[in-house]
Design a protein around this nucleic acid. Structure first.
Ligand SMILES: [Mn+2]
Ligand SMILES: [Mn+2]
Ligand SMILES: [Zn+2]
Ligand SMILES: [Zn+2]
Lengths: 143, 143
DNA sequence: TTGACAAATGCAACTGAGTTGCGTTATTAT
DNA sequence: ATAATAACGCAACTCAGTTGCATTTGTCAA
């Protein structure tokens, strides 16, 4: 399904307006495989002649999060990074040298088993986890 | 081995001085099972009549990190949390309700296998990972 | 024990990410 | 076209962490 259609539907369902900024914001996230920070987003928007205030971006991101269009990721620094949520649950490889970010899918059976064990043994209900890998990407190995 | 001895040795080896603040800082981390933020540390120090400047704490933490006495943890908010490093590699359970933090050890064989796979297939060398679990602690379940 | 020297500390000012209140502008439904 | 209200921009704010510099303190050798 065309993702724009889906987004339009979701926005309507939540009485949110499909503005130029919101559309471009989603486009920017769609065209980037890696999660983006707010500063990243502002730069990319400026490149397509859209000079937007950061407050607007923060508020738009929060709403798009609420209706499940985008998700937040933490990559080890103080910033939040955003990516479209239509991608299934996955994790990231973060290069400590050049800060490049790659998606990584993996089998999490063992992880879920551990979560169940913790839940059973200590009465802690695990709702989600965050797992990120840090190291050196192919390009930075040789340096 | 008495952890104070070990710390003293390490400090000397790096030409660092064993000051009252540094000793108390390590004591505070030693007496708390959960990782602490700088604000947490400042409060705990004030409780034992040590009113310290935050800059001093940040600088001390950085040095103790450099010589491997303490480690940094990220728990999903913008703060950094610090814990003593003599504890072996482990992860955390973070309660989304009350923010309580518990340590959790787990078998990581499967995780290491995945890391090797990624390394082989994509040429990305993984040096470390961060894995934290979010949910509801025993006390917050019933609410 | 003392004094010189380097390390540690405190303070004020700063940065960068994110938030809030409010007045103005744009989208939407009728 | 108009009215209702959501979205936007701006300025001022919070909060974690950093930096430069003057002052204090710990260490070590004389
Ligand atoms: Mn991703
Ligand atoms: Mn821990
Ligand atoms: Zn790289
Ligand atoms: Zn709890």
């Amino acid at each position: 399904m065309e993702y724009r259609e889906e987004i339009l539907t979701l926005l309507k369902a939540h009485h949110l307006r499909l503005t130029k900024i919101r559309r471009s914001l989603v486009d920017v996230l769609f065209q980037n495989e890696a999660p983006l920070s707010v500063q990243d987003i502002l730069c990319k928007l400026r490149k397509i002649q859209l000079t937007v205030n950061k407050t607007t971006v923060y508020r738009a991101l929060e709403q798009l999060q609420n209706i499940g269009i985008i998700g937040v990721v933490r990559l080890g620094d103080r910033k939040q990074y955003y990516e479209l949520a239509f991608r299934e649950h996955h994790h990231h490889l973060i290069c400590l040298q050049c800060e490049r970010v790659e998606d990584v899918d993996m089998n999490e059976d063992r992880l879920f088993a551990e979560e169940k064990k913790v839940s059973d043994e200590r009465g802690f209900t695990i709702l989600r986890h965050s797992l990120e890998f840090f190291g050196l990407c192919r390009r930075c190995q040789s340096i």
